[in-house]
């Protein structure tokens, strides 16, 4: 009884703003509720049938997957490299750590617009005046290059976070082990690959997990940088659902069924992740 009294405030806000929306979504997904008509009717699974045929939705799912895969590789490789490079410095460690984390403090909306300036003005200037011709691309207008632009900006905004986690993990590696490896004549690469990496594998899991979950929900960067365009070429799932619900059509019911399909995808991916993690932990 006592328990309930203490847990109630947290439970109330949690149920109203998270649990109830999650469950009521299942109901709304079966209706033709929109922002124009006051009433709505149950239309059964019609919305879901439409989702399965919605070319743009699946295109956005595919784009998101591509984005997630690129982010996992790019961010983790960069973050781990930076963490190792910084950890090897004694005097300048604090300075570089502070510097590299700075972009993470700034909202991706601000960062996105700042980068927009780089991509639409500064790079052209460099191409024209410094002879860096390869920069002369339509960074925002051509989907091939805007994907690269989106990855650059997203990585700029999240590598620092991962780097902090890797640094904390590397600090936990006992110095005596590294010294022993040195005594046996291991070079830097061998020390990293055979001693450090296995010992920080836990943080590797955390970081990949985090990148996957946050990249799957990408919104701010794409919203500010390309708005999902040109056309719908760089739409992520979050952008696709947002546009369906709050721009143009205002089809809440249909957008909700899309978001449930997204939820199922996320749950499947999480289950695969957990399974892989368990297997790996048993190996260790």
């Amino acid at each position: 009884m006592n328990l309930l009294i203490y847990a109630t405030p947290a439970l109330i806000v949690y149920i109203i703003f998270k649990l109830y929306p999650a469950f009521s979504g299942v109901f709304y997904a079966l209706t033709d509720w929109n922002g124009i008509n006051k009433t709505y009717e149950i239309v059964g699974i019609a919305n879901f049938l439409e989702v399965f045929k919605d070319k743009y939705f699946w295109q956005s799912v595919l784009f998101t997957m591509k984005y997630v895969a690129a982010m996992i590789v790019v961010c983790n490789v960069m973050a781990l490299t930076l963490a190792i490079a910084i950890e090897s410095r004694r005097k300048t460690k604090g300075f570089f750590r502070t510097l590299f984390y700075m972009p993470n403090m700034i909202s991706m909306v601000i960062g996105g617009y700042m980068w927009m300036f780089i991509f639409t003005k500064v790079l052209y200037y460099m191409a024209d005046n410094w002879g860096l011709k390869f920069l002369d691309q339509s960074w925002i207008g051509n989907p091939k290059y805007s994907f690269i632009a989106i990855i650059i900006v997203s990585a700029w905004g999240s590598v620092g976070y991962l780097m902090i986690i890797y640094m904390a993990a590397i600090q936990g590696v006992p110095g005596s082990l590294i010294e022993t490896a040195e005594l046996y004549g291991a070079n830097s690469w061998q020390k990293f690959w055979n001693v450090t990496l296995p010992l920080i594998s836990h943080s590797l899991t955390i970081c990949i997990f985090w990148t996957l979950n946050s990249a799957f929900q990408v919104f701010d960067v794409i919203y500010t940088l390309t708005g999902g365009g040109p056309g719908r070429a760089t739409q992520s799932v979050a952008i696709n659902i947002y546009e369906e619900a709050f721009k143009g059509n205002i089809r809440y019911g249909y957008a909700t069924s899309k978001s449930l399909v997204l939820l199922v995808i996320v749950i499947i991916i999480t289950m695969i992740q957990l399974k892989l993690m368990k297997e790996r932990e048993q190996e260790l």
């Binding site: 998270k18 109830y20 659902i241 996320v266």
Partner: peptide
Amino acid sequence: LSMIIPFSSIMIPLYKV
């Protein structure tokens, strides 16, 4: 358990709330 629910999945029903 609910920590895995992505925000975009509950965004619209939440708006209704």
